[in-house]
Write a protein that binds this DNA or RNA. Sequence first.
DNA 1: GAAGATTGAGATCTCAATCTTG
DNA 2: CAAGATTGAGATCTCAATCTTC
Lengths: 189, 189
Amino acid sequence: VPLSLLAQTQNLPAPALAPSNRYYFLVGIALETGPAEVIPPLDAEEEALWRAMARMVIALPRILETELRDATGLMPSEYAVLMHLSEQPHAAMRMSELAQMGTLSGSGMTRVVERLTRAGLVERIKCDEDARGQVAVLTDRGLARLAAAYPDHLLGVRRHVLDHLAGLDIKALTEAFGKIACEEPLPFS
Amino acid sequence: VPLSLLAQTQNLPAPALAPSNRYYFLVGIALETGPAEVIPPLDAEEEALWRAMARMVIALPRILETELRDATGLMPSEYAVLMHLSEQPHAAMRMSELAQMGTLSGSGMTRVVERLTRAGLVERIKCDEDARGQVAVLTDRGLARLAAAYPDHLLGVRRHVLDHLAGLDIKALTEAFGKIACEEPLPFS
DNA sequence: GAAGATTGAGATCTCAATCTTG
DNA sequence: CAAGATTGAGATCTCAATCTTC
């Protein structure tokens, strides 16, 4: 690793980089690295895009989670379960189906549904066809809770996301996001 | 809450929704809700966009984290610290500066830097100017570790993200992501 | 034996409280 | 007393092991 060691910042152990040697290991290639690169480094536009996107991907879930929690007392994973159930014909889903919606592992889903059951928003019943299975069913209170939370969430999605994407090619963007997320199965599953 | 209660799926307690009444509380408005809506619901294109984006925002960090961990043994938060340090003139930053980069809370940063220090990738030294402060400095081993991890990470970013965004308006997209992430300060800080 | 679901153990992260210094 | 940083407590989530049923 051919690196110039230089300026001590305080008055101590080997700092690693000279003031003028700036490295961009997340997005760009080190400016003064010697060895030939196999992977093409990012150009300036790509670097700016990825920096913005990396920040967005971290910030957005936090912003929405905080708002959702403050406004409704629900966690995103809980909201997602209620929502997915509400979209099913009988407001019912197997635990494994729920987990396969992609937001949670199997054991994580067990615990979320357990919380929701304790809160009376969901009921767990044995599956008729397969005695191994459990079916989660949305209760009236669960649906009411979802309906009450929905306007806040919709407002957040509009204000924080969609308003900023106005003017872009929505269909192309949708397709691109789909490829980023779906190309490979999620880590667990 | 004017909702038709219908079909029992198994043979049990009140399921909440009729098979034909599908609700979309994450992205669209319930199809058959009565009361006038204040917030405009999402149209079909917006709904598809948000569904894809919500999935992407969840999946992408997991994909990159899994790859990074398998390839290098580093967590994303650890990689971020090494990277941010490497980009500073003397490879040194105050704990609070590090935390303000947006990825972690103050206490979270304390713990990440503690891990990195134990691993010999970072050193913690007292701040000259302000005896309350701590300065984290990248070590040679830390820089070497970052340099070794970088190609894998770059490859992942290219393959999983940038390749799929080719053809879109990069500058507009960068600006949009910036607005989504930066508009308001992050939850903590 | 494999699949559906749950439980135990371990990791990471945030919030609130604490300690130290300006 | 405010700010920088750390520590204690609590929450959520994943992985691996377990239990039940096909």
